[in-house]
């Protein structure tokens, strides 16, 4: 089995003068749930389209399961891949089952694949028998996921699968991804803006900015390297925040505490130095300090700490 389900080498693609993707070296370990993060327009969707052969790279290479993606290997590789790219491609005049049938026939899968796929995403047979035009956004997204899961893929690629989902839909999606992670036979590459959701299911993450992959690695390792916010319990939080603001330190009031954001990755100041300086400012402002506590870093704090990074950082060996 290949070490990486997806691997790219200096992948680049331009649209006119815009470098949508520049020199991306993606490495998605086999069996992982890889959270592919980045703001809008950072190149996530273009990268995903390049991985699946929907657009051709200007330069660079894609390997799926250790095999180079070429016109000759394309069909064999895609037989092991299920994909849901942005909004699901659904035929609104057809029922859910007919939509699945149209893809099942194309993939040459047995009839049982349809029922199994519906069961995984939790779409009831009575709902699957209805026309898609009567579906809610959540049901359409669920049917799109069922289409992607139809071949029992070794690699599942999901581009913004949480778009338009309500809390119940998000929970269901999370359940499917956790189940796939536990089964361990499917590698999942999921791009999303929902950092909290990604943090709950991902084992690995990569961050795209302005067409470049700026951070990539095991989520646990990346979070260990990321300072979390510092919570300072004080007598008068608003006065403390005001004093900090006058010194140019960003902080917010959270109940009885002051929340001090960690310094940017590009800053020369360490978290310890910044915390000590903040406590000094608060005490000098005449506000009593009761407790200083470093919070555990979150994917959100990691994401924003990497905001100013432009060079590639890879924690993999």
């Amino acid at each position: 089995m290949a070490q990486y389900a997806v691997q790219t080498e200096s992948l680049s693609r331009r649209y006119g003068d815009v470098h949508a993707v520049q020199g991306v070296d993606l490495a998605v370990p086999t069996g992982s749930v890889y959270g592919f993060l980045g703001p809008n327009g950072s190149g996530k969707t273009t990268t995903i389209r390049l991985l699946l052969g929907l657009v051709r790279p200007d330069s660079g290479h894609v390997r799926l399961f250790g095999t180079p993606f070429t016109p000759q290997s394309r069909s064999g590789l895609l037989a092991r891949v299920g994909a849901l790219i942005e909004e699901p491609s659904l035929y609104r005049g057809l029922t859910g089952i007919e939509n699945l049938e149209a893809t099942r026939v194309l993939r040459g899968l047995p009839r049982s694949a349809v029922g199994r796929s519906l069961e995984i995403v939790g779409l009831a047979p009575s709902d699957a028998a209805r026309r898609v035009r009567t579906y809610s956004q959540g049901m359409r997204q669920r049917l799109g996921l069922a289409l992607a899961l139809l071949p029992r893929p070794d690699l599942l690629v999901l581009d913004e699968p949480a778009n338009g989902l309500d809390p119940d839909g998000l929970q269901d999606l999370r359940g499917v991804l956790v189940r796939l992670r536990q089964e361990g036979r499917t590698t999942v590459l999921v791009s999303s803006h929902q950092l909290g959701e990604v943090e709950r299911v991902a084992t690995d993450v990569g961050v795209m900015r302005e067409g470049r992959l700026v951070r990539q690695g095991l989520l646990a390792d990346l979070l260990r390297q990321t300072p979390g916010p510092v919570r300072i319990r004080v007598r008068d939080p608003e006065r403390a925040v005001g004093a900090l603001a006058r010194c140019g330190t960003e902080a917010t009031c959270r109940g009885e505490t002051v929340l001090l954001e960690p310094p940017r990755a590009s800053s020369d100041t360490s978290l310890d130095t910044a915390t000590a300086a903040a406590v000094r400012v608060i005490v000098e402002a005449g506000v009593e300090v009761f407790e200083v506590k470093a919070e555990a870093p979150t994917l959100e704090s990691f994401f924003f700490s990497s905001a100013e990074e432009t060079s590639h950082t890879n924690t993999r060996p």
Partner: peptide, 18 residues
């Protein structure tokens, strides 16, 4: 139009079919 309105091309072209 069946494919255009369903945004079907991005789905069809990711399938293991010529």
């Amino acid at each position: 139009g069946t494919e255009h309105s369903a945004r079907g091309w991005k789905h069809l072209f990711t399938l293991p079919v010529w």
